[in-house]
Design a binder for these strands. Structure first.
Lengths: 325, 325
DNA sequence: ACAAAATTGCGAAACGTTTCGATTTATTCA
DNA sequence: TGAATAAATCGAAACGTTTCGCAATTTTGT
């Protein structure tokens, strides 16, 4: 592999001169710089990332950690992140799985973005204590080296439940997320509040784990409830809503949007292809990513960071109809 | 940041001793090794990845390059890759975008897996010439440092077209992929052959670009054809099939599975949620990933690599019905 | 008990950069 | 025409590891 040293001897200059030249320092005259540059090109020189990382103590790399790569959800987010990071000359690297966590303390990145349930809060705080810059997207952490872009979970869940209530539904079910998930807790809290505001409304909470199977598994209980009258179901994310619809369609004769009214959360791509179209809560994942990147870069560069928040809106769909009541 | 040097002085030994101890060399007695290890733990030592990379000239990192992160498709593939790599102590890193290409010549990885149309063949061959190990999943390249796991495109496309022909359809349309895409060319060639084998069958080829919009845009021509009798459409991937169904459903009164029979390719997650269920060609993306990882590791370790191939099967769906003929 | 052999640890160089301070060369000014 | 100043280049140290060859120490065999 050709190194700076090879260029130096080819050009008959010292390695420091080569380094300065290649990095566009004004300590070197334009002519020698050009000459060195063209020799470098000719030799096909590419700097060694490891060496540069080691010496400069910066990597120009940002890591994004995801719970998994299933990516129903991640495409737009990553797009937003990447655009913003590339604009500032950082590269984006996507990782998943416990094993990869250690890349953080190994100083593989200048900063990391976390949307990964396999990190415990304490673990993240530990990294932050060691000086690593973090932006967390799936929790809230109070630490000078940690920032977050908050999703307006409360507003979203409220919107969803009030949509059902607004259609005249009074018997509300909510399928929850894992106890450990911050999003799930926030959303469920808002659900309770929204239901409580309507005296004649009732709420049944069903457990869930944010995956299709949870929605499917909640099916029987929903179906049972629906046989005693229309029911509005808020699934705390779209995956579960899709699982539920799957159950209702294949295992019951109940009609979605008439007997059972379903609303999800996230507006994943699949939601718009469901029949009937899934009502859900939408927000700009791309913007979410862009803001996260911006925050992280600010932290890295030591500029002040302001708290950001992503707003949500309701997307109507035929999975919610008009109640007969 | 605590380094090996800090441990050395804390333990009163030399840095080489620390290095040996921490790496489990038998040059160091068990007791000192343990002592050093516990000091390291206490100090919260984590090795510096850049330094290790530089010195050992290996990174234990494998890069996967994707055209984009939209990931309708990638989830399972990445899962298969990651499992296999982690089992062998490698970490997986996902990259996308032209900018990130340079990570390859910068020696960021021990090898890379390419499923990314933004790489030109010549570019990849250039990297291979420089000694970088590559597995390509979206093309075929003849180079000692490049291997591929072939998808059986020919078999898949044949299966798809024969499925339509088998249902009595004689007027076949095929929506193609980008000219530059190897997969698309292979599939289309097989389509032509399959149609030619049935004398009374006719084929119309429509252009496409492997995205939903292409399918949608092909809609009017398909609809026109369908008004003169049933037509069987093979979309060279599911995305386009979904776009086409979208058009047919929202812009025409033609019924999918009766007037227009649609089959896709890839069996992406969305396919099974389409109404009617999209008939398509399925193959194990997870296995595809696992084999790619295995090949790459073999190349890295200098073991002989055997050519692998992924087999395909037809998934029936109501998007193809029985022709009246 | 002593040399030979084995065990355990150490010193230093190297990986490929960047960058500080010093040195050489060219330019300016009186 | 020198001395003073500015411009261009160089040498060497450093980043944090690994690893080779050597030195010191312990063990073994007789």
């Amino acid at each position: 592999m050709v190194s700076i040293k090879d260029i130096a001897s080819a050009a008959g200059v010292s390695i420091s001169t080569v380094s300065y030249a290649l990095n566009g320092s004004d300590r070197i005259t334009k002519e020698t710089a050009d000459r060195i540059q063209s020799i470098a090109d000719e030799l096909g020189y590419v700097p060694n990332r490891a060496a540069r990382m080691l010496k400069k103590r910066e990597t120009m790399l940002v890591g994004v950690f995801l719970t998994d790569f299933s990516g129903n959800f991640y495409g737009d987010l990553l797009f937003g992140l990447k655009e913003e990071l590339n604009r500032r000359d950082y590269d984006l690297i996507v990782c998943s799985g416990r094993r990869s966590h250690r890349m953080i303390p190994e100083r593989t990145f200048d900063g990391a973005i976390i949307l990964d349930a396999t990190f415990a809060d304490a673990e993240l705080l530990g990294y932050a204590d060691r000086g690593h810059k973090l932006v967390v997207l799936d929790r809230e952490l109070d630490h000078p080296n940690v920032n977050q872009v908050l999703l307006d979970n409360k507003a979203g869940a409220t919107l969803a439940v009030e949509h059902l209530l607004g259609r005249g539904l009074r018997r509300i079910c909510a399928i929850g997320g894992p106890e450990s998930a911050y999003d799930a807790r926030q959303r469920m809290r808002a659900v309770r509040q929204a239901v409580e505001r309507v005296p004649e409304a009732s709420l049944a909470e069903l457990p869930g784990a944010f995956d299709k199977a949870s929605g499917y598994d909640a099916g029987p209980r929903i179906a049972e409830a629906a046989r005693e009258g229309q029911v509005g179901v808020f699934c705390l994310n779209d995956e579960m809503a899709i699982g539920l619809c799957d159950y209702l369609r294949t295992r019951t004769t109940l009609k979605i949007g008439r007997d059972v009214h379903v609303v999800g959360y996230d507006n994943i791509e699949l939601a718009q292809y469901m029949q009937p179209r899934l009502a859900t809560i939408d927000y700009s994942k791309r913007k979410w990513g862009a803001l996260a990147a911006e925050q992280l870069l600010k932290m890295i560069e030591g500029r002040p960071v302001e708290q950001e928040r992503i707003y949500v809106r309701l997307v109507e769909g035929q999975s919610v109809g008009q109640s007969g009541l």
